[in-house]
Amino acid sequence: MDIKATVLDILNDLTGSDVSGAMDENLFDSGIMDSMASVQLLLSLQSELGVNVPVSEFERSEWDTPNKIIAKVESLD
């Protein structure tokens, strides 16, 4: 499975909402994501894609939309 689909799956599971229709929506501003969900995202990335992201790498402004998250994961893969 490609990265984009996996990340979207993780996000859907995590937030209970389908974010694929709003790829540039700020997930923190809209209240869909919070710190808790961020950590869950990092753990899922680790277990499902084998991408290791330490907490201090999580600069919120670089991870705040579905598109940015996908780009970030692709750059770390």
Binding site: S35, M36, S38, V39, Q40, L43, S56, F58
Partner: peptide, 26 residues
């Protein structure tokens, strides 16, 4: 506090499965 206490503790609790539910962890 968010980045160096909250998120790190949540990360640690979840990785070691200390609590069953994510809401309890939070």
């Amino acid at each position: 506090f968010r980045d160096f206490i909250y998120m790190r503790l949540v990360f640690w609790f979840m990785k070691h499965k200390v609590f069953k539910k994510p809401t309890t962890t939070a």
